[in-house]
Design a protein around this nucleic acid. Structure first.
Lengths: 224, 224
DNA sequence: ACAACGGTTCGACGCCGCTCGAACCATCGA
DNA sequence: TCGATGGTTCGAGCGGCGTCGAACCGTTGT
C-alpha cells in the first residue's frame, strides 16, 4: 500500500461519463458555459453544475466569471495531456468497436455536433472555406477573412449578430480526426442547411442525410 | 455529446482506490500475484480478485498463469504512460498536502513497504550496498554481486532460499523519489531488523522506529 | 422596479459497485 | 490419494454518488 499523489481521486473525476463528455468537449481549448456543457454531456443543468463544481474543486477545470456567464475551461495543458493519454489507451484497448469513429456510416458522413455540422462533409467545407480565404486559420484559431461578411450575407447569414459566443470555433471531428467549423457561424450554416431542406435529421440520431439536390446545393454554395 | 473512445470506462477503472494502488504497485514493471496485490491495495483476496478481473477485462492488465500462481502485470508502456500522466496531474493539482511524501516524519525516515523497508534509510542502504559492490545495478535491475552470498551469510541471511519471487527488486520510494531494495532479500533484511529488535513497528502505522543502539547496529552492518 | 435568463443549491430517490465471508476449484507436494 | 495453498465465484449487505425537480440567487435589459 504505497503512498503517493491521489491518482484515484483524479481518475474518478474523469471516470464519470457525463464529466468525461464535458472534458472531451473542452479539449478544443475554448471555454464553454455550463448550459453548453450540460448539452454536451446530455444531462440536466443542475447535474452539470454539480459535476462542474467537482471538476473545478478537483483542479481539472478553471472558472472565469463574466457577467452572468460562467466559462469553464481546462486547467492547463497538463490536464489536456492526461486526457489525451487516457484517450489513447481507451482507443488502443477498446477495439471492440471495429471501425473507428461513429458506428453508423451516415453519421460518419454528416451529423449534428451540438448545434453545428460535423463529419466528412463538414471537414471538407471548412477546408474549402479556408482555401478560398473566406476564413483564416492561424494556429488553432479560426477567424473571418476579408470577404467573409459579403460572402455569407449573400446567402442570408449575418456573421455579426449574437456576439455572445465566438463566431468561429474549431471542433475536432472524431471520425475524421480533423477540425470542422463550430461557433455561431457553424450553427448558422447548419440552420441554413435544415431551413433550405437540403438535408433532414435522422430520427433519434445525430445523423444528417442530404437529399441529392440538397447535396448539390450545399456543394455549390460552400464547396464551389 | 461528442463520440469517441470510452475514456470514462478506462478512467473509472483507475478511479477506484484499491485498483489505483494495484496499478501503482505494478508501475515497478514486475508482475505480482493476486495475494501480493491484495496486500498492496489493502483489501481482501476476493475483492482483489474481482478488481483484477476488471482490470484485465478492461485491457489495463495482462495475466500470466504459471502453475498455481497467476501473475498480473501492466498491459504495456502506453498504460504506464497514462498512469504517469494521471500521477503528474494529481501531484500538480493536489498541493493540499504541503510536504511531498508520507505525512508523518517518522514514516519518511523508515517504514514498511509491504514486506521490506522503505524510506530514507532504505534508500541509503541500497546506495551503500551498490557502492560496496555487494549488489549490482544495471539499468533498472538489481542483481547479486560476487561477495553477496558470503556477506549476507555472515549476518544470517541466505540469499538462495525461496526462489519463488525475485531475490532483488527495485521499489520506487515515494518520499525520496529514488529506489530502495525489495524482493526476498529486502524482506529478509526487514525480518532481520525486527528480529534483532533494532527497531519496532509503530502501532497501526507503517512507520518503523529504530532504537539508538539499533540504529547503530543497522548502520554498522548495512552502511559500514 | 420588474421580468427574463443563466446558474447554483437543496432534498429526495434510486442504482451501481465496492466489500467481505463462505464455499468452491485448481494446482502442487507428500 | 489426501491435505495445503493460491485464486475465483457466489451471495448479501450497504454506502456513496449520480440524477433530476423545485426553489433560490445574481445579473442584464427594459
Amino acid at each position: 500500500m504505497r503512498e503517493g499523489p491521489d491518482i484515484a481521486r483524479i481518475a474518478s473525476l474523469v471516470g464519470d461519463p457525463a464529466r468525461a463528455n464535458m472534458l472531451n468537449a473542452l479539449m478544443g481549448g475554448t471555454a464553454l458555459t455550463a448550459s453548453e456543457l450540460a448539452l454536451e454531456a446530455g444531462v440536466s443543468l443542475p447535474t452539470a453544475s454539480s459535476h462542474l463544481s467537482k471538476l473545478v474543486e478537483g483542479g481539472l477545470l478553471t472558472l472565469a466569471s463574466q457577467g452572468r456567464h460562467r466559462y469553464y475551461g481546462l486547467a492547463g495543458p497538463q490536464v489536456a495531456g492526461m486526457i489525451e493519454a487516457i484517450t489513447g489507451v481507451a482507443e488502443a484497448v477498446g477495439p471492440k468497436r471495429v471501425r473507428p469513429g461513429p458506428r453508423d456510416g451516415a453519421m460518419r458522413i454528416a451529423r449534428v455536433c451540438y448545434d453545428h455540422l460535423a463529419g466528412e462533409q463538414a471537414v471538407e467545407m471548412l477546408d474549402r472555406l479556408v482555401e478560398k480565404n473566406i476564413l483564416v486559420r492561424d494556429d488553432k484559431e479560426i477567424r473571418l477573412g476579408p470577404s467573409a461578411a459579403s460572402h455569407f450575407a449573400a446567402i442570408g447569414i449575418d456573421v455579426y449578430t449574437k456576439p455572445r459566443r465566438p463566431v468561429c470555433r474549431a471542433c475536432l471531428d472524431w471520425s475524421v480526426r480533423r477540425s470542422h467549423l463550430a461557433g455561431t457561424l457553424g450553427a448558422a450554416i447548419l440552420d441554413k442547411i435544415l431551413a433550405e431542406k437540403w438535408a433532414r435529421r435522422e430520427k433519434d440520431s445525430r445523423a444528417v442525410v442530404f437529399s441529392p439536390p440538397g447535396k448539390q446545393a450545399f456543394e455549390r454554395v460552400f464547396l464551389g
